[in-house]
Design a protein around this nucleic acid. Structure first.
Length: 573
DNA sequence: GGACGGTGAAACTTCAGGTTGCCTC
DNA sequence: GAAGTTTCACCGTCC
């Protein structure tokens, strides 16, 4: 199929057959080789993360055999950069780095954002030639390519395994052709036989894209908008409310607005019950609390859930000693909110484990499981999510987490972000309620989630170049506080974390005086690093020994966790 | 004869996406 | 629907 740059259905042409050189049994590989031979770039769209990785690896193998890769120097540098994004690279990082060496990358939400950025930028520069991705790339970014291959036009969703919408197909196909660079772009759909060919042409090439409908009347969305509109004093009276919503897309599409108005007033009633909105003489105003909720972009239901548990938080979380269980309970509570969705999914094989866990923790949770309120699978997913996040702040290695729970570093990262945001909201609520001890607690917890650390190395994380791995190394070597680090000698520290990082830390701690005290070592190291990068102090890479240590840690983690559980170990805050 | 290891077919399992808050270096 | 993973029966080899 062959499409013009500015994708419009009238201009789409279906070309007859075009023969390409057959070098492999796999048609996709042939297409890739054919396109690379004329020095053009490709995007390949897959229907799952797994398949986008598998496709990339298959092509990388073929390219390796052909030995025609260009930009080898840049690619091997990029490959190294990709590995370095995380202090301890996971299996996924290594797979990606290997593909990148051949000028091909996979791209999906499971990657860490820095990696995604590196891939996108280097594709734009022409260093990476092929990206095999999930639909991530089709929607947001402007990453056009000469050729687009839609490998799968069917995808699994909650409704089963179905054709993707025409709109989405167009999004992907429309990535073919680079405006300002080329006049044409090729878009290829991967199909099995002639029957499918006919179907695809009818549905996607000559078919109409789906209509877009407003979902404004859906309650959770409506709650957020009504609160924010009232809070900004855009709508305050019944007339204003009706007038405003009449002019929305929803109003345009559905002329009978009575249903919508009914929902709006129902929502307002709930917001009043939540004490986010006040009504005086038919005049609606947001309360201080309501304004805060709206400012925080928090779903009013979530805010209400948090606030209704606030007294419990004060009683339990604010105490000086906090058990692991409390953090678990907190994340489990988060998992019932809209913001945390979608949760990490419990697999079939994990069922038994989470049934048992549910039994064990049920009574301690902030909200007991209610089969009439919540789907069992959803509840179990919440337990899994809480367990994963607890492992994260108990310093479980990332590799361990991805392997054990079958999740990607990217997914872990997104959840961290959401939790950080929700904890920030709780911080703000604590401030409003003047519960400063609690505010401090949530703030510390945020830092722990950000870095994935236990509380005893919190202080070390503030140092540049020190993440969870190095912080723990320092602590183990006896440097648990900043004053420990200040009084340590250069040799003592450099044995643990290397020369460059020692200098960087010493400089941070001692300021100017450092130059005098350690001028000798500084000169030595700077002379050494000048050869590669002048003046800049480079942070040492993770060595093989460290990798071995990490593997060992991974093995030990489960054991330690079990012991801690048995002891009912308390965490000092 | 029993333990062990390799092999392959059958059964089972899973499958996309990433905005919003605020601060600080 | 398809790819990846696990399970299990079957067979040959070795002690």
């Amino acid at each position: 199929m062959h499409m013009s740059t500015n994708f419009s259905m009238d201009e789409v042409k279906v070309l007859g057959s075009k023969s390409i050189t057959v070098e492999s049994k796999e048609s996709i590989i042939n297409l890739v080789l054919d396109t690379l031979a004329i020095e053009k770039q490709l995007l390949i769209f897959n229907n799952s993360k797994n398949s986008s990785e598998a496709t990339a690896e298959k092509i990388a193998m073929a390219l390796k055999k052909k030995k025609t890769v260009t930009h080898q120097k840049e690619l091997s540098q990029l490959s190294e950069q990709i590995l370095k994004v995380m202090q301890s690279p996971t299996k996924q990082c290594r797979r990606l780095a290997k593909c990148v060496e051949q000028g091909i990358a996979f791209h999906h939400s499971g990657l860490v954002s820095k990696q995604r950025y590196l891939i996108e930028e280097n594709f734009k520069k022409g260093i990476i030639k092929v990206i095999s991705s999930t639909p991530t790339l089709a929607a947001g970014l402007n990453l056009p390519a000469y050729k687009v291959i839609i490998k799968d036009y069917k995808r699994y969703s909650s409704r089963g395994f179905n054709d993707i919408p025409v709109l989405e197909f167009m999004q992907m196909a429309g990535r073919a052709g680079r405006p300002g660079h080329e006049d044409i772009g090729h878009s290829v759909v991967h199909i099995k036989d002639d029957n499918e060919l006919e179907r695809v042409i009818k549905k996607y090439i000559h078919g109409k894209p789906e209509e877009i409908y407003s979902k404004l009347a859906v309650e959770p969305t409506l709650k957020m908008y009504v609160l924010s509109l009232v809070s900004m004093d855009i709508i305050n009276t019944e007339d204003e409310i009706k007038e405003f919503f009449k002019n929305t897309l929803y109003g345009e599409q559905y002329h009978d607005l009575e249903g919508l108005y009914y929902n709006i007033f129902k929502v307002l009633k709930i917001l009043k019950e939540y004490q986010f909105v006040r009504e005086d003489d038919n005049y609606y105003v947001a309360t201080t609390l309501g304004k805060k909720v709206s400012e925080l972009y928090l779903n009013p239901d979530t805010a209400h859930l948090f606030l209704s548990h606030f007294d419990t938080f004060v009683k339990t979380l604010g105490s000086k000693y906090v058990s692991r269980q409390h953090v678990f309970n907190l994340i489990q509570l988060f998992s019932t909110t809209m913001e945390m969705k979608p949760l990490f999914r419990m697999g079939k094989k994990e069922e038994e484990h989470y049934m048992q866990l549910a039994d064990d923790v049920q009574e301690e949770l902030f909200v007991e499981y209610d089969p009439f309120e919540q789907d069992l699978q959803d509840f179990m997913n919440g337990l899994k999510t809480a367990e994963i996040m607890q492992d994260w702040i108990e310093e479980a290695p990332e590799e361990y987490i991805s392997e054990k729970y079958s999740i990607t570093p990217g997914e872990l990262h997104f959840k961290k972000e959401v939790i950080d945001w929700l904890l920030y909201c709780l911080e703000e609520f604590s401030q409003l309620r003047k519960q400063f001890y609690l505010k401090n607690y949530f703030n510390k917890l945020r830092q722990r989630f950000k870095s994935g650390i236990k509380d005893d190395v919190l202080v070390l994380i503030s140092l540049k170049g020190v993440g969870r791995v190095r912080a723990r190394k320092l602590k183990k070597a006896g440097f648990g506080t900043l004053s420990d680090l200040r009084s340590a000698t250069f040799e003592q520290l450099s044995r643990v974390i290397g020369d460059a990082l020692t200098i960087s830390i010493k400089k941070e701690l001692h300021g100017e005086t450092y130059e005098q005290d350690f001028s000798h070592e500084l000169k030595q190291v700077e002379k050494f690093s000048r050869s590669s990068k002048p003046k800049e102090i480079r942070v040492r890479e993770v060595t093989e020994v460290e990798v071995d240590e990490l593997v060992e840690e991974t093995q030990n983690f489960e054991k330690e966790k079990e012991e801690a559980k048995q002891k009912g170990l308390l965490q000092y805050f």
